[in-house]
Nucleic acid binder design. Structure first.
Lengths: 341, 341
DNA sequence: ATGAAAAATGCAAGCGCTTACATATTTGCT
DNA sequence: AGCAAATATGTAAGCGCTTGCATTTTTCAT
């Protein structure tokens, strides 16, 4: 059937091997159903022709794609890379392929990407965080696409989720900081609008403040996109107050590294003059100078669990619900007691 | 036609709007061919149903996907992120979608990913570097898939390419280093097998050495995967010789940052005791301590040009060939004269 | 040897969409 | 008003594959 110059099709293979297309299809997908001799014959036809199954045709006929889509806020920093890597490895072991796209932290782009992935036949979706337009959840339901949220655990969330308690994790760190004697605290957060992780981390700091009798509204909070540069500018800003803080808690390691760098430029010694902390524990945190005290998030474990949960939802109508993952503080060199202590 | 519980199809929309499927299809793809009133009627049917075109069906019927595939060695470091971002933006403007996958620097995985992308209907492919099994080039030809190589410019390459001259760029830096008086030079390179960029950068250093009357075989060259940790270990190794080098040239910024970090741990002052250079000029280079002297690569420009070239190949049978991009040395603080100078 | 059950293979109907080509409608002239 | 040309819409044939069901071949117990 193939007009010269087109890629060979199942038909071509079938013809060459002298069998029906059904048999070729079975050789490729369920070799067990086909007798050895036939399988070999078909295989050599495939090789001779350099045949590649057409994915679109397969998806159409089979009505599943064995593909999972993931939309992450950004590929530009390492935050999601590790978890996604584990996610993908686990999927691969179960015969699924991962398609990744990024939303640049823009809700509209995320919505578009979700549509694209669904249109492309994704059997399931991995989303980051819970904050998004309700319409998206309605559509997901309408299209009957199983979806799972990662990087944020919320007990009563709309969608099943695999993640950790951002609020409690940050509260733990903030408690520790306050426990060291810090009372004037600056916060450099990611943009919290549409980002529950960022918002909950701020809430965690506020929780810790109240708990220690500090007024949460005394916290200086600056929100800025997750980029090193922005961490630096925000640090300048937070330090430019009449009475600057003695500790600056950052919403993630990327911002913290920017802050650290700016502190050094300003001639401040960290942690003697000022303490700075991060969140996530990416590689950058270890090699920063001084090494960053931060909250370790089990990214790989999270990715792996997310994959299992999603596959469970796809194959066994499992609910996808699980327990939150534990985080812990990694103490390195960027946090110390306040200067006057 | 839709059995309850399935996503709505073109048929459903056509029925609801009281037109034929052809008209609906035209409304979606060539609204100009359809009269306003019809278009509106169809649009509201689409909205009412929450209709999403099925991509697989569309690809099959139209025999093109408006999708470009890119296989990059890794998503784990920022080297490719920026260029790919620009690539994708440019594609998007021309109505193409980008599908990215990574090969983990493994030739077999790369080959598999290429097949996957082609099977998924990619109209064209972006590949990184030239070194790969000839079979892959044969297949690409057989399948009639236009492909373009980026990140490495070679005048007589198999495939059209957009990139810079890795060898000359690194030679320029090495010349500068040697010009400062360094004669004992260490090299920390990525794994050069199957990676022409890594190999050519080494060659560039060797070129510069010969040119200055140094024996290229005196260079201590260590190859190691592109990870910060590895840069650190390699640095220890290269410094453990009887007569350690006074300058260590690294194959990329990631390795250089690792080396820098280890140097600091060893109590060495950079650049007073030892000079260290990188390659790529990613953000990390700027915020490293001391800031890294490196080779700036115009990643965004490269990505943009690669997109234009590939689209040209797809739409106008353009050859895709272009000119090499220019790189330049960025002098920061990690390179100085040798200690005894 | 022989027939029933099991295993292997073939047949053919779609999957949801695009797009020639055919047909119906509108437009612009005279 | 009336006709040709231009424009809008409909008809239906696939695109390459999977899979339920029908048919053929093999296996195995008698």
């Amino acid at each position: 059937m193939s007009k010269l110059g087109s890629a060979p099709t199942l038909d071509d293979v079938a013809k060459l091997a002298g069998v029906s297309t059904a048999t070729v299809s079975r050789c490729l997908n369920n070799p067990g159903q086909v007798v050895e001799a036939t399988r070999l014959r078909v295989q050599s036809a495939v090789d001779a022709l350099g045949y590649m199954p057409n994915f679109a045709a397969r998806v159409m006929a089979a009505k599943r794609s064995s593909t999972i889509g993931a939309i992450i806020p950004t590929m530009e920093n390492a935050i999601f890379a590790r978890g996604l890597q584990a996610f993908q490895e686990e999927l691969h072991q179960h015969g699924y392929t991962l398609l990744v796209s990024s939303s640049a932290y823009e809700p509209e782009i995320e919505e578009e990407q979700i549509k694209t992935l669904v249109a492309r036949g994704a059997d399931g979706l991995l989303l980051i965080g819970h904050d998004r337009h309700p319409r998206i959840y309605e559509n997901l339901e309408r299209w009957k696409i199983p979806a799972l949220v990662a990087w944020s655990y919320l007990p009563d969330a709309q969608l099943p989720c695999i993640g950790f308690d951002n609020r409690a994790a940050m509260a733990e760190l903030a408690n520790h900081v306050i426990g060291l004697g810090h009372t004037r605290i600056g916060v450099i957060s990611g943009i919290s609008a549409g980002n529950d992780r960022a918002r909950l981390r701020i809430n965690g700091i506020q929780d810790a403040a109240s708990q220690h009798g500090l007024d949460p509204s005394d916290l200086t909070i600056i929100e800025t996109p997750y980029e090193i540069e922005n961490g630096a500018s925000a640090f300048s800003e937070v330090m430019s107050q009449n009475i600057p803080p003695t500790a600056v808690l950052c919403g993630n390691d990327v911002l913290a590294v920017g802050a650290l760098h700016r502190a050094m430029e300003m001639g401040l010694n960290v942690p003697r003059d000022i303490s700075i902390t991060g969140f996530d524990d990416i590689e950058l945190a270890r090699i920063a100078t001084p090494a960053l005290t931060t909250v370790h998030v089990p990214h790989r474990e999270m990715g792996r669990r997310a994959a299992s949960a999603l596959i469970g939802m796809l194959e066994n109508q499992a609910s996808g619900h699980g327990n939150p993952l534990a985080t812990h503080i990694v103490e390195r060199q960027s946090l110390g007691p306040p200067p006057d202590a």
